[in-house]
Simulated assay, not measured.
Amino acid sequence: MPVFALLLLAVVAELAVIIAVGQAIGALTTILLLVAVSVLGVSLLRRQGMRTLTTLTDAARNRRDPSPAVTDGVLLAVAAALVVFPGFLSDIAALFLLFPPTRGLVRRRLLRRAATRRRGYAVVDGEVVDDDEVTNPEVIVIDSRRED
């Protein structure tokens, strides 16, 4: 499904929920509730963002794998965009990404999916050599899938 269609569907769903909540509890209460949830989201975003930045710094300093912290940072950026987008559905999705236990579920799934997509690729270590320094050019191709 194209991105535009998904965005249009999200806007229509948000409006439908806002109208339904507004009819149930009143327009002013609905607006106050939207503002309160956004303020809560921004507060959680600030706290979790600082915690993630500290975790990333510690991982880099201690030479640990930074991918969980980087993934958390990306998920927090998505949560920030969802908090800014007005509506209850986007706020619920943002809060889902802001709470560490539920964000951990999404992070593990993303990292597992990324690991399965990386299989079959080889990492090549090399260096850049100036053309003037090459006197006898030679190309060596290594097939990492071949079993010797």
Rank of each mutant, 00 (worst) to 15 (best):
Ile19Ala: 12
Ala77Lys: 12
Thr102Glu: 06
Asp143Arg: 02
Tyr121Asn: 14
Leu6Glu: 09
Val141Gln: 00
Thr55Gly: 07
Arg64Ser: 15
Ala114Val: 06
Gly73Glu: 07
Arg64Asp: 15
Arg64Ala: 14
Ala94Glu: 01
Ile140Trp: 11
Leu33Ser: 07
Phe85Leu: 15
Asp72Met: 09
Val124Ser: 03
Gly126Tyr: 09
Val74Phe: 13
Val39Pro: 03
Leu95Asn: 05
Tyr121Gln: 08
Val12Cys: 04
Asp148Leu: 11
Leu56Asp: 00
Leu75Arg: 02
Arg61Met: 05
Ile18Lys: 00
Ala59Pro: 00
Thr102Phe: 09
Val139Thr: 11
Arg146Gln: 14
Gly73Val: 03
Leu33Trp: 02
Leu6Asn: 13
Val141Trp: 07
Pro137Leu: 07
Ile142Cys: 12
Leu95His: 01
Thr52Cys: 11
Asp72Trp: 02
Val37Asn: 04
Ile19Tyr: 09
Pro100Gly: 03
Thr30Glu: 00
Arg107Glu: 08
Gly87Asp: 00
Leu34Phe: 10
Glu127Ala: 07
Ala114Gln: 09
Arg108Pro: 04
Asp91Phe: 06
Ala59Leu: 03
Asp130Leu: 08
Val35Thr: 06
Leu98Tyr: 11
Phe85Gln: 13
Arg103Glu: 05
Arg113Gln: 14
Ala60His: 11
Thr52Ser: 08
Tyr121Met: 14
Pro100His: 02
Val78Gly: 09
Ala20Lys: 01
